[in-house]
Every structure is written in C-alpha cells, then in structure tokens.
Amino acid sequence: MAASSSPYDLWLSDKLLSLNPDCDTDVFVSYISAILDETDTPIEEKKESLGSIIGEVVSQDQDAVCEELIQKWNEFQKQKKNSAEDNTADLGDKLSQILSERKLTVAKERQLTSEELARKEAILAQYSQVSDEEDASRPEESTKKTEAGGDSLVTKNVNKEAVLKAEKEKREKSKQEHEKKKEKDKKDRENQKQKVLDRKDGEKKRTQKGEKRR
C-alpha cells in the first residue's frame, strides 16, 4: 500500500487479505474505494459493482462482505467530516480571538488619548493660562482623534475583506481539487476495471490451455 493511503484503504487492505491472502490489494483496494467515493452513484449500483469485484476475492458470503465494506466506509467518512468540522470551529475561534484582541487594543488606545487630554486640560486650568488659541486647538485634537479612529475602522474593514477573500479562494481551490480528483478517480477506476478483466481473461486462457493438454 502507498504511504498516502487513507485509514479506510489500510483497513480495507487488511480485510481483503484476511479473506484471501492471495488478493492483489493494489488493484482491489483502489477500485473499491473509487466505487464508494462516487457521490453521484446510487447505493444499489455501488453494491452491484462491489459484488462483481468481491466475487474475485471470495466465493461465499459476498453480500455480507459488501455490506461490511459500505458500513466501514460510512463510519470513516463520518469521522473525517467530524474532524473537518472541528478544524473549522477552531479556525472560527481563532479569528474571533484575534478580532477581540484588536478591539481591546483599539479601546486601550482611545482610553489613553482621553487621559492625556484630561491631564492637559487640568494643567491648563490650574495655571489659568487657557487662551483662545489653546481652546481652538482642542477641536483639532478631537478631529485627529476621530481621524485615528477612522483609520482603525478602515484597517479592520481591510482585514475583514482579506479574510473573506482568503476563505473564498480556499473554497474555490478545494472545489477545483475535488473536480480533478473525481476525474482522476474515474480514469483510475476504468484502468483498474480493465486490469481485473485482463486478469480474468488471462486465467481463463490458462485454464483452457491446461484442459487441452489433458
């Protein structure tokens, strides 16, 4: 088996060898997995396809073996889905944490600016040196503060757009990879099916040749 084999492929390989030690797992495992992975095929057609393949491995209890293969496939797919959902939830938690930390940082910056302004006003009031020019400077400071807050808001919006764009690109890439995988699986399934047929023809010819010698 290849190093990149899925958990189900590993289980399937052991299962087939337990049923028939002479089973060619490189051919049968890939072919069976490709059949089960086809989402557009009705379950009855999958069972029929599996039955013809399992018939090359065992001569009895073929229906029971097919049912077990399908059941195990569904179990592994459920585990895979749950794992993916957990990873998505973890990503959502991390994004929420980042946004919360950013909001806290902005809040602290605004609070610090207010304290500095209050201290300045207290000093000016203490020495009674508040002039019209200094009074006019306060709206300017308030304007700078508003502009700083506006810059923070723009930055947050840019970051949000970047995250959404990255998620969209990730989904598009995943979709393209899924389509490529389906096409590859389809070609592999056809090639593997032909190998099985060629193998059956070869065995048939050898049997006929042996009977003629007798």
Rank of each mutant, 00 (worst) to 15 (best):
T25R: 04
K184M: 08
N191Q: 09
D26K: 14
K193Q: 07
K187T: 07
Y127G: 01
L12F: 00
L17T: 05
Q71K: 10
A162M: 11
W73E: 00
R110M: 11
E38K: 03
L50R: 00
E203H: 11
H178G: 05
D93C: 14
E75K: 09
A3E: 06
K165C: 12
T105W: 13
Q60W: 15
E45D: 06
V106T: 13
K94G: 04
D93L: 13
E67G: 04
G149H: 04
S18Q: 08
V57Y: 05
K81T: 11
D185G: 06
E115L: 12
S174Q: 05
K182Q: 10
Y127C: 03
K108L: 12
E169G: 01
Q126M: 09
E45A: 09
E48K: 06
G55R: 02
Q194N: 10
S30N: 09
E134T: 11
I123V: 12
K173N: 04
D86G: 12
S96H: 10
Q60D: 11
R138W: 15
G55D: 01
V154W: 10
L69G: 03
A125M: 03
L153S: 05
A84F: 09
M1I: 09
D63Q: 13
E101A: 11
A34P: 02
L50I: 00
F28R: 02
A84E: 04
T88K: 11
D24G: 09
Q129T: 13
K184W: 08
H178M: 11
K15Y: 15
E141C: 13
N20L: 10
L197P: 00
R199G: 14
Q194P: 00
E38L: 07
V58G: 03
K184G: 03
E116I: 09
S100P: 04
R171M: 07
E115M: 15
G149W: 07
A166S: 07
D61P: 00
Q60L: 12
V27C: 14
L104A: 09
E44I: 15
K200G: 01
K94Y: 09
V29W: 03
D135R: 14
M1W: 03
T113G: 08
K205D: 08
E85N: 11
K144Y: 05
Q176W: 07
L12R: 02
T155P: 05
G92C: 10
V106G: 02
M1N: 01
L12H: 00
V29S: 00
P21N: 04
V130A: 00
E115F: 15
R119G: 04
R110S: 13
R189F: 05
E177Q: 15
N82I: 06
E147L: 14
I43V: 12
I32A: 02
K200E: 11
K187N: 07
E85Y: 10
N74T: 10
K80I: 08
C66Q: 00
R213T: 06
E44L: 14
V106P: 00
T207S: 13
V196C: 04
L99M: 07
Q129S: 11
K195G: 01
K204L: 12
E48S: 15
T143Q: 12
K168T: 05
L124V: 03
D185N: 14
E56S: 14
K15T: 02
P21Y: 06
A107R: 14
L104H: 14
N191K: 13
E101I: 15
Q129N: 12
A2E: 08
W11R: 02
H178T: 08
E169V: 10
